[in-house]
Design a binder for these strands. Structure first.
Lengths: 138, 138
DNA sequence: ACAGGAAGCGCAATGGTATTGCAAACTAGT
DNA sequence: ACTAGTTTGCAATACCATTGCGCTTCCTGT
């Protein structure tokens, strides 16, 4: 159990502290991206700042990616295997449900190439689709 | 001059107050989307809250649209003619320059249709391309 | 012209999120 | 067990968005 989670951390060169094991364990149980506040509530009682720094570390090391879905709070979700430290491959579509306000990754849907005017250089693309998710559509 | 701006407001059913004329005039002079703080600085000395409410009113009436470019502060830009109150047609790409941190609209580039999994219903799409703009690329 | 009401404005105040500093607690290697 | 470096928890700060409220101003109906 814990060994598995621990390996995930060490593979990404992250010291497996007790706190980080808890955070990763919690992330693994999520079906959608979560905010820092969600994490704080789920791991109560824990210090918000510590959780914040754990997520930052995970992001830096390529274990999670952050999503700005326009809700005001940054969301975090586990990366697919192919992410590396400092070089994310998270160019997939994120979906924000206006009903349940959950954000989920749609990793199968790659972002199409966007034609830019002359002189513009693309480095990063953020594509959020908002609407109603499959759980709320009925 | 002022008459022109005034007409733009009345056409959208917005009372043309002195403050709003100033705000719209300032918006017309911009080449990129601006934040509330930008507006506040440009129209100093003016009350931030009043400017905030002017922008909200403009947005509500379909005169401007807001853009969340991930910079933390909401940006505002004038709509194309075809926007109506409560029903924006601003489904175009926005470009955020990582160098000059300016956000601009790329209205010629419509957002491509994104295929969604079964049961997902799209209502809105937010597409931000980040990179280097034509002014900063050299 | 007058009275009443609606709309707009400016100040104060609140709430939420992100971020940094610092000192104590902890961990790992010797 | 000792020390150096890492991690943690608390305090504090900085923004941004948003609301409440009283005052002024403008419009309207009589």
């Amino acid at each position: 159990m814990t060994e598995n989670i621990e390996v995930m951390l060490t593979e990404k060169n992250i010291n497996p502290t007790a706190m980080r094991l808890l955070v990763l364990d919690f992330l693994l149980k999520q079906s959608s991206a979560i905010s820092l506040t969600d994490l704080e509530k789920g791991l109560d009682p824990s210090d918000r700042i510590t959780l914040y720094r754990a997520l930052k570390k995970f992001e830096e090391k390529g274990l999670v990616h952050s999503i700005d879905d326009g809700s005001g709070a940054t969301k975090y979700a586990l990366c697919e295997n192919n992410c590396e430290a400092g070089h994310h491959h998270d160019l997939h579509v994120h979906f924000f449900c206006n009903t349940c306000r959950e954000t989920s990754c749609l990793p199968k849907h790659h972002i199409p190439q966007i034609p830019l005017p002359d002189g513009f250089k693309s480095e990063e693309v953020n594509l959020i689709v908002k609407g109603v998710c499959n759980k709320c559509v009925h």
